[in-house]
């Protein structure tokens, strides 16, 4: 029986303990402050990054891993277990070239290998939850087909919403997508953002953070009703609002498992300090 190995990139924001336990291979993206380059989550931790982001006068830029880096990763895995099947799950192709790079990396590989590169059309733990699910199924000996089927279903069913403190970072990074023609800047308008078909989309807009949180909870309550769910709360710099949102969510949803994670430097570059996110997926009762 062939083994299935799971590869993802650093934007999946999978906590360290999970990735070690589930043997997940992570290809880091890069974040650059001028000439200075860091590997996301490897040579720069989220804490270090946000310190630098708030203290540095220049805004960082980000870059995807090169195809060669993917090729080398796939090659190394196949050296370890030559009959392995690789499922490589990545950041939405609508906002990053990472997926494209992985596809190219596969084509550069000078050996036969069963590799599926999957466009999550998502970001942060929206990728992470698919990766964790896939890795758990792989550990349980499930087949490539079973895993792909399961993560596709999960991907359709999951919900993610995020709140940014300011749209400035999304605008500067050009990642604002359909949220672009949103609104003015005079009022403190909080767009409720999500990824729709991989693109950043504002599905609603409200004034004020508290109202925004209430609106998100209305949305998830409508989506999941009384079904049991797993919830992951994520943040860039401040966890208070995320934890508060989690507490309120528990009062309105049947939450089975709660996870916390920090949004890494690459996604952090594009959403900025003060961002919080909630990821929800249905689980079996």
């Amino acid at each position: 029986m062939s083994t299935v190995r799971i590869v993802t990139d650093s934007t999946a924001d999978i906590p360290q303990d999970m990735r070690e336990k589930l043997n997940i291979e992570i290809v880091p993206l890069k974040v650059l402050f001028g000439e200075e380059s860091f590997l996301d989550g490897v040579t720069i931790s989220p804490e270090q990054f946000y310190d630098k982001l708030t203290s540095s006068s220049m805004l960082p830029t980000t870059s995807q891993p090169s195809p060669v880096e993917f090729m080398e990763t796939y090659d190394r895995i196949l050296n370890e277990s030559p009959d392995a099947t690789i499922i490589s799950i990545h950041l939405s192709s609508a906002v990053s070239g990472t997926y494209q790079s992985a596809v190219l990396g596969h084509s550069l590989l000078e050996r036969e290998g069963d590799i599926v590169v999957y466009d999550s059309k998502s970001a942060s733990f929206g990728i992470g939850m698919l990766v964790v699910k896939a890795a758990e199924m792989a550990a349980a000996g499930m087949s490539k087909e079973q895993i792909l089927d399961a993560i596709e279903t999960m991907n359709q069913d999951k919900r993610l919403y995020f709140l940014v403190d300011t749209l400035e970072y999304l605008q500067k990074g050009g990642r604002i997508g359909k949220a672009a023609a949103l609104f003015g800047s005079i009022l403190n308008i909080k767009p409720i953002l999500t990824l729709d078909d991989g693109e950043v989309t504002a599905i609603d807009k409200v004034r004020g953070q508290k109202k925004a949180v209430l609106r998100i909870l209305d949305l998830v309550a409508k989506d999941f009703g009384s079904d049991p769910v797993d919830m992951t709360l994520a943040w860039t710099t401040h966890n208070e609002l995320a934890l508060e949102m989690g507490e309120q969510a528990k009062a309105r949803l049947q939450v089975r498992g709660t996870h916390h994670t920090k949004i890494g430097s690459v996604i952090g570059t594009h959403v900025g300090p003060g961002t919080v996110a909630i990821f929800i997926n249905r689980v079996k009762g």
């Binding site: 609104f183 003015g184 800047s185 005079i186 009022l187 308008i189």
Partner: peptide, 8 residues
């Protein structure tokens, strides 16, 4: 007026 013009 500016707030209105700024918001559609």
């Amino acid at each position: 007026s500016n707030i209105f013009l700024d918001n559609n």
